[in-house]
């Protein structure tokens, strides 16, 4: 069996339920687009009441779009292997011949596709409801930043998936712990430069931070003075982060598989 073909098929296989789930569970339209829109609305009305420049409303919509990916990384990537263990899927994945990274890659690939559809819906609702205007100053750079930011973000999700497996049932609490601080530190609704150089630099470990900052500068050129770093530099850092997260995820997964086999924690408790 050709190893590349085996792993490509495994990625396709694991991505499939995520993509199909989008069609089979239409309730997401309400829960995952209308509810975030309410959150966005609150910030937009605050900025409007303060007579903030219109680009701030654009910041909020962009932040709302990227929030969808962050929530997806937390709840559908980071905690996923733990839940797979509870349903006995994990032991079947582990006993199968493909690389376990293919399972994580399949989860990420399927999640990016399905979440992009959700994010697009939020973006369109934001544009139509609040008349937000975007000026794409550099389409290529925007595309590169968006793609690399997502790769880094889902790379981080793959790393978290392995770590959460080790932390077990604390996964639920960890998600709650990470969710809100990341909203704040990544500057979801405001320019991250406002946090100060030191804190903004520290927050750059979160791929959303630099991704959002670069996209803001590309989509709202008048916000460039509020940019933390040059978008090309941010793209470079995001690329490095992608490699670091993917390598770390592979190492963590191998290590946790070994520890799990030693301690007997990879299979369901009742078995």
């Amino acid at each position: 069996m050709n190893t590349v073909l085996l792993n490509l098929r495994a990625i396709r296989g694991r991505a499939y339920p995520r993509i199909v789930g989008l069609i089979r569970e239409p309730s997401w339209i309400f829960w995952e687009t209308v509810l975030p829109l309410l959150s966005i609305s609150a910030f937009i009305y605050v900025y409007r009441s303060l007579n903030a420049p219109p680009m701030y409303e654009g910041f909020v919509v962009l932040g709302g779009v990227m929030t969808t990916y962050w929530l997806n990384v937390l709840w559908s990537m980071a905690a996923q292997l733990y839940w797979e263990k509870e349903t006995a899927n994990l032991q079947l994945y582990l006993a199968a011949p493909m690389s376990k990274m293919s399972i994580l890659a399949g989860m990420a690939f399927g999640a990016i596709i399905s979440t992009t559809l959700r994010a697009t819906t939020i973006l369109l609702l934001g544009i139509f409801v609040f008349h937000v205007k975007f000026v794409i100053s550099s389409p290529l750079l925007l595309l590169l930043v968006f793609v690399v930011a997502l790769l880094a973000l889902y790379g981080m999700g793959m790393l978290f998936a392995s770590l959460y497996l080790m932390w077990g049932r604390e996964a639920w609490y960890l998600n709650n712990l990470f969710q809100e601080p990341v909203y704040f530190l990544s500057g979801q609704y405001f320019p991250v430069k406002a946090l100060g150089t030191f804190l903004a630099a520290a927050a750059s470990i979160i791929p959303l931070t630099l991704g959002l900052d670069a996209m803001r500068q590309i989509l709202f050129p008048e916000s460039i003075p509020w940019g933390f770093l040059n978008p090309w530099i941010e793209l470079g850092i995001l690329s490095v982060l992608t490699v670091i997260f993917l390598v770390a995820a592979k190492y963590a997964l191998d290590r946790i598989e070994y520890l799990g086999k030693t301690k007997g924690t990879l299979t369901m408790r009742w078995q």
Binding site: M1, N2, L5, L6, R9, A10, R12, G13, R14, Y16, P17, V20, L92, Y93, A96, P97, M98, I103
Partner: peptide, 11 residues
């Protein structure tokens, strides 16, 4: 679909 998915893990 479930069976097809598992078949993919064996290439």
């Amino acid at each position: 679909e479930n069976l097809w998915m598992f078949s993919q893990f064996y290439g």
